[in-house]
Design a protein around this nucleic acid. Structure first.
Length: 118
DNA sequence: TAGGTGACGCGGT
DNA sequence: CACCGCGCCACCT
């Protein structure tokens, strides 16, 4: 299993106008305890292809704050351009914008992983 | 090989 | 709400 490619695939499926948490993505990738590796994957741009990293926030709804974007407010701008409200403290309302994936989504991802051998 | 590190998560105070 | 500590685990010295 290639965790980083799975991360890329899951992130690319986060709906426009939604945000997901690192733990949520780790869970969907089949490694519930690897939330840290999700951030690592995005930061090092592993996995080989483009990832919509701006839709990732921590479990409290705060934007990473990491210096991985062009400018400090790049993530905020991208989110706002998708209609996501970002507070002055760089926080989003998870209840409103958090991606609510279903049990079926999880199954669909498992299937995709298998098909692609990752 | 052993330890340090971190775009994290969660429970406690 | 703020802060803290600990668990976690792949990477990187």
């Amino acid at each position: 299993m290639n965790f980083y490619q799975r991360v890329a695939l899951v992130c690319s499926r986060i709906p426009r106008g939604c945000v997901a948490t690192y733990g949520q993505v780790a869970l969907l990738c089949g490694k519930p305890k690897n939330s840290r590796q999700v951030g690592y994957a995005l930061g090092r741009k592993l996995s080989g292809w483009e990832i919509p990293a701006h839709r990732m926030v921590n479990h409290q709804g705060y934007l990473s704050g990491a210096a991985a974007f062009e400018r400090p407010d790049t993530q905020k701008k991208l989110l706002r351009s998708e209609g996501v409200l970002v507070s002055r403290e760089n926080r989003v309302d998870l209840g409103k914008y958090g991606w609510k994936h279903t049990f079926l989504d999880a199954l669909a991802f498992e299937k995709l992983f298998e098909e692609r051998g990752i």
